[in-house]
């Protein structure tokens, strides 16, 4: 498989000014690695506001002036220079932005998708939009319509790589799946797709690989199947729950220990479950799995560290049930069971 995109040891910081002379760097992304090959759909999954959009903007070369980046971005093995970007952006490299402000407010949306009438009609009907929509201006669209228009605009030109930044919020489940199937189809036809999303469920269902993003870095890269397959054991190695938080939102699981107690392994009345996530490596990935409504809805306590205030060692340490003294030193990414994990104690 040929790599279309490689992001190596990527870091991003903002220069902030306290007063006139005191310049301070705000580190938003550190040591981030990700590759997208031909025919592959890779999801970067993490909470919103954690810097995922900045990663997408970094790849697209549209970062704000005061951003300072490190590491490298390669396009088919070549450094992504401003000149190369200019050549491929909007053609071989397509972008579905998160912000709805990317549409030009003064131009009818049909024109912004494509000038090719046939292609326009095809895309519009594919996304269950009425033909009249093409004649509307952006402000006349609902959030969900805008989202679909931006996807159409990105996919109109048959790109080699699609970078999609949160393409589904505001869409109904049905429309979100529809869009994901379209991305999947493009990957199956040989394109690469980099899906930046907070929606772990969509990532699990449609992507080949998932990079779990936490505090500005990828803590684990796993096959999507690792979130599903399992032998019935709870991912933290615990069998069954402590009783807290199973099946009810009213339990006292808010005070439960930091190890996601209580997901249990019995079905819990909310319908299908996503397997047991036992293939996962990092404690945060396991917490994500256990927090899904169809799994345990487990509210593992704690919040992601603030960019200006990152802990010195492992970024997950303040919330981690497995931390030891070794975790005062930041873990390097290492291969484990076919994935990559940044954790001293993952097995």
């Amino acid at each position: 498989m040929n790599n279309i995109l490689e992001v190596k040891d990527f870091s991003l910081a903002f220069a902030m000014y306290d007063g006139v002379f005191h310049r301070r760097m705000l580190n938003v992304i550190t040591n981030l690695n990700i590759t997208v090959g031909e025919g592959e759909m890779v999801a970067v999954a993490g909470s919103s506001g954690s810097g995922k959009s900045l990663l997408a903007h970094g790849i697209m070369g549209i970062l704000p002036q005061n951003a300072v980046t490190g590491g490298s971005v390669l396009w088919r093995g070549q450094p992504m220079t401003p000149k190369l970007l200019k050549k491929i952006r909007g053609r071989a490299l397509a972008f579905v932005p998160q912000s709805v402000t990317y549409l030009d407010p003064l131009i009818r949306v049909g024109r912004q998708i494509t000038r090719d009438k046939g292609k326009l009609g095809e895309l519009i009907s594919r996304y269950h939009l009425k033909p009249e929509v093409a004649r509307l201006y952006p402000h006349e669209l609902s959030g969900g319509m805008t989202r679909r228009i931006m996807i159409c605009a990105a996919l109109a030109g048959s790109p080699e790589l699609v970078v999609a930044d949160e393409p589904t919020p505001g869409l109904s489940r049905h429309l979100a799946e529809h869009a994901m199937k379209h991305f999947r189809e493009m990957a199956d036809a040989g394109a690469g797709v980099l899906l930046v999303t907070h929606d772990i469920e969509l990532a699990i269902r449609f992507a080949d690989r998932i990079a779990v993003f936490y505090g500005g870095t990828t803590v684990e890269t796993a096959d999507a199947a690792d979130f599903v397959n399992g032998d019935g054991r709870y991912p933290n190695g615990r069998d069954g729950g402590d009783g807290a938080g199973v099946g009810q939102v009213t339990g006292d699981s808010q005070d439960a220990g930091g190890d996601g107690a209580g997901a249990g392994s019995e079905p819990d009345g909310t319908g299908r479950r996503q397997g047991d996530g036992v293939g996962l490596r990092h404690p945060y990935s396991k917490a994500l799995w256990a927090a899904m409504p169809q799994n345990g809805f487990v509210p593992t306590p704690g919040v992601q560290p603030y960019a200006g205030d990152l802990p010195a060692g492992c970024l997950y340490a303040p919330r981690c049930p497995m931390r030891t003294q070794a975790c005062d030193v930041a873990p390097e990414p290492r291969p484990l069971r076919g994935g990559v994990v940044s954790c001293h104690h993952a097995v």
């Binding site: 993490g46 919103s48 939102v249 009213t250 808010q254 899904m292 409504p293 809805f297 509210p299 919040v303």
Partner: peptide, 24 residues
């Protein structure tokens, strides 16, 4: 109105469990 749509699932579970407990 879709208050947890943009959040990761851990934050979503935290926020809803807390909000529902307060509502109850």
């Amino acid at each position: 109105d879709e208050i947890s749509t943009m959040l990761d699932v851990v934050t979503q579970a935290q926020i809803w469990q807390a909000l529902i407990r307060i509502c109850e």
